[in-house]
Design a protein around this nucleic acid. Structure first.
Lengths: 245, 245
DNA sequence: CAGTGGTCTAGACCACCTT
DNA sequence: AGGTGGTCTAGACCACTGA
């Protein structure tokens, strides 16, 4: 019961493996181990938590199954950084040319008071300060997605201040570097809408033509809300793939 | 090494837990235990596979995590039948009235030669016999989804012969009862299309108005393809929700 | 009450990677 | 060679369920 008390806030009635898991998850997310530094070996971890190796293995297996850790026989246990920023590109496809690399261009960053929709999605009060990022994604010259992203302030003030190159090429790693927050999960909702004037111009389509709208709420693995995002793309070349289990 | 040899086809170089898992999965999928009959207790299963309880527990835990089994302390271990036919209704929502129950009406069942698209999706030869089911889904009086479903023959001949009441209310349980095949996973792709004449009439929308198209390939947990499905619904009231992990 | 799964331990042996 | 995770065992004790 020495080091185990480090777990602090977790409920003491919970089984040992659950308390250890909560604490280890917290430490992993706090960045205690960079991705190239192995966690202590399971025997050492076990004794530091006053548990058996078997119980420790259970925790490590679960976190591995959930995608938080990577274990390699003979090498060690490593933190696996969120890699799913690419998922948008798993989902999106332009019919035909798969050769051209997608690019992204940040058009605008402003601080504004949160509207009711953004406030509800982010779990904050209407009127609180939020950072809004407007971004355009392109395949070569052709824009295929217009994104508006809202982040709560002051947590993400470093993202507001950063130079544009610091935000490239991907946003989620930048959140991690600048604000110390890592995205682990997201929930998206798709619907179909009509292009209004500004969107039509941005996406180079006719006003009134059908667009796909994707709203995304991104959270940490622990479930804390990170960002709210609303994206629009031309419906005609749109493909979205989902696996149901 | 007595009963364990029952596993038969699985690779002997695999770890014991993997071989047991393969065999148990096969038995579960073969319908050896109806959903209301518990599997043998873990101790009994362990000894029948000449393994320790710990190894057996590992297998049972994995199958539980994958959604195949349901374990309840004090009651036993049960087979969990595919419950995700309802997932369409998790995804679909008509704005406004959530009171009315969704209904489905089978319009047509015919045997036809597989077209190239169906053949590729089902992994069979173009021109092979397939069963095509045309179905309409409604909220009250309002149709919200037109579905065409293709099933390979002769595997699903019982589904072709069955009365309509035997196919109600849900198709996947009917596949199980009639053809002994249970759906465990599915892959869906969404895109946007325009309503042609017949679809417009079925869905009671104007010809040329935007529709959402969902193509689905459903498989068993083992990965064998069960059905190919193409569904269309009016885009305006459409919502589709996805969790990304 | 008897029987089930849930938790936890202690330790053996093996396969793999690094040095 | 030494250290890592992977596999497997044997058994104790607890919590829950149903008759």
């Amino acid at each position: 019961m020495t080091h185990a008390s480090r777990s602090g806030s977790t409920d003491h009635r919970l089984p040992l493996h659950a308390r250890i898991k909560d604490d280890l998850l917290r430490r992993v997310q706090s960045g205690e181990w960079p991705t190239d530094v192995p966690l202590p070996p399971e025997a050492e971890l076990a004794s530091s938590y006053d548990s058996s190796v078997g119980t420790m293995r259970r925790v490590l297996s679960e976190l591995t199954a959930e995608g938080m850790l990577l274990r390699q026989q003979g090498r060690g246990t490593f933190v696996r950084r969120a890699s799913f920023e690419n998922s948008l590109f798993r989902f999106f496809r332009v019919q035909g040319d798969a050769e051209v690399q997608p690019a992204s261009r940040i058009l605008d960053r402003t601080t504004e008071p949160a509207g009711p929709q953004q406030a509800e999605a982010l779990g904050i009060k209407t009127g609180s300060d939020v950072l809004r990022i407007q971004r355009l994604r392109l395949w070569g010259e052709r824009p295929f997605l217009s994104e508006r992203i809202w982040l709560p302030l002051p947590e993400f003030r470093e993202v507001a201040m950063a130079s544009e190159t610091e935000l490239a090429p991907l946003l989620y790693p930048a959140y991690e570097r600048l604000a110390g927050v890592s995205v682990g999960r997201a929930s998206e909702e798709l619907s179909v809408a009509e292009a209004d004037e500004p969107l039509a111009e941005l996406l180079q389509v006719a006003a009134g033509s059908p667009l796909v709208r994707i709203t995304r709420i991104a959270t940490t693995h622990a479930g804390d809300i990170v960002e709210y995002r609303e994206s629009f793309g031309p419906a005609d070349t749109f493909r979205y793939r989902v696996e149901i289990n």
